[in-house]
Computed example of a mutant assay.
Amino acid sequence: MARSRSMGNARLFLRFAAASIAGQARYPASALMLTTGQFLATGIEVVAIWALFDRFGSLQGWRLGEVALFYGLVHAMFALADMLGRGFDVLGTELLRTGAFDRLLLRPRPVALQLMGHDLRLSRLGRLLQAGLVLAFGSVQAGIDWTPAAIAVAVFAVAGGVALFLGILVLQGALAFWTVESLEIANVFTYGGVEAGQYPMALYARWFRRLLTFGVPLACVAYYPALWVLGRADPLGAPAWVGAVSPLAGFVFLGLAFGVWRLGLRRYASSGS
């Protein structure tokens, strides 16, 4: 019974996603420009990182290829999460204030699933493509040996990172049940997390590393798995095996975020419109 329900939910999500993509495909020029804009906007960051290493050669012993791996992983995580979590991002401004959220509650399907298929943005493919190119560049520069184990750890890390960033967006949507708007503070942990995650955690102060390990576990989904893939010892002393299991923290974070989401959903009172 549970398996049949899961399959039904998966098919429903695919239908929502197909409808969202079809709507954007009606305006191909607009979709292409938005995707290109995402690619170019994040490309500026790549140029800035390249200029930094071109000027100084290395950063506390970290080389350009190694940082490119961090960059590619964290941007791939965020691009996929941002593509799936758009509905939570606009929950307060587009759904709660207008009363449109009530329509989702009347449907006999999980509300979170409907929100994930609400607006699947094709433009995020621009960021994802750019992350893939940087990841390929970093692999060549750092001489990474992509063994099956390394590929498995990298895929696991991306999955855990998607769960982490999606969890942040879910928390942002959940807060809208109390504030009737999506708080911009969530951007500190989404966009700010992307900026922080594209560099090794060893470069940051101790309190900041602890925040990004035990508070918002970005280090668990990006830093430690990247070290494992690079075959590099952690300057902070963590054992190598941590990188193979630490992405689980992203899924734990997502589970906790959905716990807060359910609390907010029970608190919600219909707009009556």
Score class of each variant (00 low, 15 high):
F165E: 06
V111Y: 13
L104H: 13
A157S: 15
R63L: 13
F78Q: 12
H118R: 09
A112I: 03
L105N: 02
L164H: 01
A131L: 05
L105F: 07
M116D: 11
L128D: 01
F56T: 02
I168W: 05
E94H: 11
A154K: 04
S139R: 05
L115W: 01
A68D: 00
E94W: 13
T98N: 06
T98S: 15
P148Y: 08
A79Q: 11
S58Q: 11
L106E: 15
A150K: 05
P108V: 12
V67G: 02
G99M: 04
G65E: 13
G87M: 08
L128K: 02
L135R: 08
F78N: 10
L95Q: 09
V140A: 15
R121T: 10
G85A: 13
G57K: 02
L133H: 04
D102N: 03
V67W: 09
L115H: 05
M83P: 13
G57C: 10
A100Q: 15
G160D: 04
W50L: 03
A152L: 14
G85I: 14
A150I: 00
A51M: 13
G57E: 02
L164N: 06
L106R: 15
L135G: 02
A157Y: 07
R86A: 12
F137W: 04
I151H: 01
A79G: 10
G61L: 08
G160P: 05
Q114K: 07
R107I: 15
Q130H: 15
S58V: 00
V134I: 14
R109I: 08
G132V: 12
Y71E: 06
L96V: 12
T98Y: 12
F70R: 01
V158G: 07
G117N: 14
L95D: 06
F88Q: 06
L59E: 00
A81K: 08
F137P: 00
A152T: 01
F56Q: 01
L125R: 08
R103K: 15
A150F: 00
R107A: 12
D145C: 00
A100Y: 08
F70K: 09
L80T: 10
L115Q: 11
V153N: 01
L122G: 08
Q130M: 13
F56L: 03
L122Y: 02
G85S: 15
S123A: 09
F137R: 02
I151Y: 05
F101H: 07
D54P: 00
P110M: 13
R124Y: 15
L129Q: 12
L120N: 00
R109P: 00
V90M: 01
M77T: 04
R55F: 07
Q141R: 14
L105V: 07
D119Y: 12
